[in-house]
Amino acid sequence: MPDGWARFGKGNMQSVWNYEDEDEAEINLDIISDDEIEAIKNLTFTDFMIRTDVNFSLLADDSRNPSTIYALYLPSLKTVSLNIPMDKYSDNTELRFNDAGDRVMCFGKYAEHLCGQDGLPRKNEATERLVVTNVYFGPRAVDRGATATRSNWFRNRYTWDGSFYNLLAK
C-alpha cells in the first residue's frame, strides 16, 4: 500500500469470493462496513484509489435480476445503488467493472436493452468513479422480482470472483 493511504474493504482472502456465472446462490457481501463508510465520510479524504482483482458481471434474463450493487461515487461520496430493472428487454443487459474496477459499465447485446435507463450508464459507457460497499446477488429471488420457476434460466446470473477489493484514501 502506498505511504499515507488508509485502506478500507476486504483483502487477502485467498479466493474466498468464488462466484463465477452463478445462477442460483443468493448472497449478500459487505465489502466495506458501515463503520468504515462513516469514517470515510467524516474524514477529509480528497484522493481515492481502488485496488481489486475482482472479476464482476451481472446479467438479467427475462425478468428483473434482483441483484443490486451498493456504492459511493468518488470523490463526492454520494450513495448510489445499481440494478437492472424489470422490463421486457432486461435479458439484453449486462453490468461489468471496467478494467480498473472503479466504474461499472453497461452492455446491451441487441438494440433492446436497459443501458441508459434508471440510473444505469449508457451502452458501452461507464458510471462515475465509485467504490462498491455492498453487493446483493439473488438471481432467482422470487420476493425481489425474479421468477424462479423458469426451466431455461441461463442468463440471470452473476460473477464476483477474486480475493480483494480495497478503497485507498488519503
Score class of each variant (00 low, 15 high):
D3G: 06
E24I: 13
E20H: 10
L43A: 11
N98M: 04
N28Q: 13
M13Q: 14
V54M: 14
L114D: 03
T44A: 11
N152R: 11
G9C: 05
E26N: 10
S63T: 15
K78C: 00
F56S: 04
L130V: 00
Y73P: 00
E20G: 01
P85W: 06
N134R: 15
T44R: 12
G11K: 14
P85T: 14
E36F: 01
K170F: 03
T149K: 11
N12M: 08
N98A: 09
V16A: 10
M105D: 05
D91S: 12
T159N: 04
V80C: 00
A169V: 06
V135C: 04
D99F: 07
V104R: 02
R140M: 09
L29W: 12
K41T: 13
R96G: 01
S33Y: 11
Y19I: 03
S67I: 04
A100V: 04
E20M: 07
S33A: 13
F8I: 04
N12H: 12
A60V: 05
R96Q: 14
D53S: 10
L167I: 05
S163W: 05
Y158D: 03
K170E: 08
D62Q: 12
L74N: 03
S81Y: 02
D61Y: 11
F154A: 05
G4C: 12
E112N: 13
